[in-house]
Every structure is written in structure tokens, then in C-alpha cells.
Design a protein around this nucleic acid. Sequence first.
DNA 1: CAATATACCTGGATGC
DNA 2: TGCATCCAGGTATATT
Length: 278
Amino acid sequence: MPELPEVEVTRRGLLDQLPGRTITGITWSHHRLRTEIPRQLLLEHITGQRILTIDRRAKYLLFRMANKAILLIHLGMTGKLSLTQRETVTHKHDHLVLQLDNTMELRLNDSRRFGSIAVWPATHAAARECEFSTKEGIEPFDSNFAPDALFELARKRHVPVKSFLMNGRIIAGIGNIYANEILFAARVHPLTPANRLPIEAWQKIITQSRGILLQAIEAGGSTISDFLGTSGHPGHFQLQLKVYSRAGLPCPRCSRPITKTVLAGRATYWCPLCQKRG
DNA sequence: CAATATACCTGGATGC
DNA sequence: TGCATCCAGGTATATT
């Protein structure tokens, strides 16, 4: 579910309320997420700590604690973080609950359990973060997300440009919904081999990536079936989607029916008239 | 090394 | 109503 915009919307929702708060207790489910919940590390390094701030890298949230430890949360496909009053009924698939020093708690709900939780103790946090960050791709809002850089990275890659955009080791934060939308906005055919795109096409992709992701953030993200912001409200960018999940419906630009295929296991949509192969 | 397939899960929609 | 099947926003790992 959550791509960069949904993770960023979650981060902003948390920033209103969490910095300055202390985590007074932690509970968890007996299930494992994509990885085992690091229960011992949570107890030792996060319980009793004050939250300084929350950052985002790729689709990960980094909770920076006063003791310099870092709590890392990934939402997977169905993860949602919510800030709720302690007495509010709990839900099936609540896997982590951070009790705060007021009447609230932060709950992680994730039905498919593709999310993950990690704790980096203060003594290793800086090194772990550095190591982690080098493995993640370029941030779309970073200045090094630039045409010449992408052209160079794509030089030896014959994969379709859509797979290239979705490769988190190359570019951070772009998942299936936004890859489809960005390529429509840039008028680039999703099956174009990455190494065949001229520098001008990369420029368009960059401009449209930032435009689409920003619009999506402002719209509170996309709620396809279950994404909710931290206060429980859905996003509404799904109402502005031009091609994603719109197979057979008219292209908003030219009215031709939107085409769908499956690429590397992921649904891929484009307008056969507006998006030409490079 | 690059590209693809597979595995990890639940739940909603669809079809019989 | 029940049951089987397919599909879904992600990513690490194994395999070609």
C-alpha cells in the first residue's frame, strides 16, 4: 500500500503530536511481521525514551529517540500507524502499541504483516543508518535526482523504465501506483527499456515524479482499499489517478481506452496514444 | 551483474 | 450462503 506519499503523510501526522512525548510502555502481538519483532531491543532501547523527531528515508520511518537509538518502521502493503486514545477499542492485526506519557498511544496495524520493525541501539545507530541509507535509492526530492544521474544509472539496464522507477535500490519511494501515474504524466511508455531513454525523457520523469508525489502528499495519499492517515482519515489522491486501475476507461487526455498488462508481476497501465515508446 | 521468479500474509471482490 | 480463485500499495532471497 504505502508508497512515498502515504509514508510522508503518516510522518507529518505523527510530527504534530509525537516529538517531546515519552514512550512509557510497549506491547506487541505474538505474530511476526516480515521479520521478527525485536521485542528485547524495544524493551531495552525504546521503552522510557523521549521521541525527538521522525524522519523518512525511502518508505521507512525513522523515530529518533533522546538516547540516540532509532526505531525503524516499514508499513509493507497494509501497515497503518494511528494515534488513538488509550481506551479506544483495539483491532485485529494491531502488532505494536507504543504507550505515550499522555492519554494516547501509537498503534501499528498490519493485516498482511509485510511491514517490519527494527531498533538500532544508540551505540550502533549512526553506523547502521549510514549502511542502511547507502542501500536505498535516490530520494525523488533530493538534488541528486537529476537527469544525467538517471541516464547514467540506466546505461546498462535493459529493464522497462517502469521497473527501473520501482527499483528501490535505484530510486526511493516510488511503488506501483505512482510509477504508473508518473509515466503517464511524463508521456513515457512504461515498457520502454530504461537504457533507451534520452536525457530529455529523464528530465520529464523527474519533473513529473516530484509533481505527482507532491500532489499525492497534499491529497493525503491514495486510499485504494485501506490506507489511513494517523488520525484515521483516508487519503483522496485515488480520485485523481489518471491510469492506475483504470483499464478500459477513457484516457483523461485523449479518451482512448487505457491499456493494462502485467509487468514483473505488477499491474501496469498506460494510454496507447499518449505514451509512446522512446 | 542483471533480470525474473518466488515467498511471505490476509482479506476483499468475483464467479460458480 | 458457501467455497474456490484471483488480486492487492512491498521487498528480500533464490534462481536463471
